[in-house]
């Protein structure tokens, strides 16, 4: 196992209109790790993920991805890297959203081809085998010419995962990927994610799926009110939580 962190976030501060949502968060993720971030709504876990891939800007802190710094902290203020560095960092990360956010006017296959062709300037013929391979992997090859509106939520989310993978990222970020799905449909999505973890993809997963966190994650972080309350490997975290806040959350979740 490679123990060099591929993601380092240090002392992350973020507030929305004066309300502090991240109060000095530190996380490190090693290559091939699966980090599960859990916690109640409003704890800042989604915001943390969105700060990492630049959908939100932080007020202070350091974000490092591989050898590049997205931000450095100067006089208690985050200073962002130049656009080219930002682009390079962001290209290492794929993102999966709670609401899937597939492009509704494109077929499944077109959704997958879009970014490699437009952003990486790849030829359609070059991407096609990669995209078709991914669709086989998620078991939706037969839906390649369907529009997203014809798919179930679970199928849409698997396509969204494949779309992100089609850009061959080193890291996959999941923002509550199953929260908008019926329990029955989450299984397929979780299986796809499990498969990805088995292939040693580095993953950060914000989730309410305790079973998934327990089985798949290599590390679990519990957040509440913009702070990390507790973290550890899933085994000890779920069986012997130390903090009262964690205990009450887990009792509620597992009820």
């Amino acid at each position: 196992m490679n123990n060099q962190p591929i993601i380092k976030m240090h002392n992350i501060h973020k507030s929305f209109n004066g309300i502090s949502v991240l109060k000095g968060i530190d996380i490190e993720v090693n290559k091939s790790d699966v980090l599960a971030v859990i916690g109640p709504s409003g704890s800042g876990k989604s915001t943390l993920l969105r700060c990492l891939n630049n959908l939100e800007t932080i007020d202070d802190g350091t974000i490092q991805v591989a050898e590049d710094f997205l931000t450095t902290s100067v006089n208690n203020k985050a200073v962002y890297a130049d656009k080219i560095t930002q682009k390079r960092i962001l290209s290492r990360m794929g993102m999966v959203f709670q609401q899937f956010n597939l492009f509704p006017h494109m077929t499944v296959l077109e959704n997958l081809l879009e970014a490699p062709v437009q952003v990486k300037n790849m030829k359609k013929d070059e991407v096609l085998p990669i995209a078709e391979d991914l669709l086989h992997k998620i078991g939706l090859f037969d839906k390649k010419d369907a529009y997203p509106s014809r798919l179930s939520g679970g199928q849409q989310q698997r396509v969204a995962i494949a779309r992100a993978l089609c850009m061959s990222p080193d890291i996959m970020l999941f923002d509550e990927p199953t929260s908008a799905l019926d329990p029955e449909l989450t299984i397929g999505v979780l299986n796809t994610m499990r498969q990805l973890a088995e292939e040693h993809m580095t993953m950060i997963v914000v989730t309410h799926e305790m079973g998934f966190a327990r089985d798949v994650a290599s590390n679990v972080i519990f957040m509440a009110d913009g702070n990390i309350v507790e973290q550890g490997n899933p085994e000890t975290f779920f069986t012997h939580p130390q903090e009262e806040r964690t205990k009450s959350f887990l009792t509620n979740m597992l009820k």
Binding site: N53, L55, G94, N101, A115, Q118, V119, K120, R163, M167
Partner: peptide
């Protein structure tokens, strides 16, 4: 939906690409 812009952004698409390929259609 804002999610369309965010999806395009996380895939590395620029603003003009996002408008032309994702939003305007």
């Amino acid at each position: 939906n804002r999610g369309q812009y965010e999806a395009a952004k996380t895939l590395g698409m620029s603003y003009p690409q996002t408008m032309r390929r994702i939003i305007l259609p």
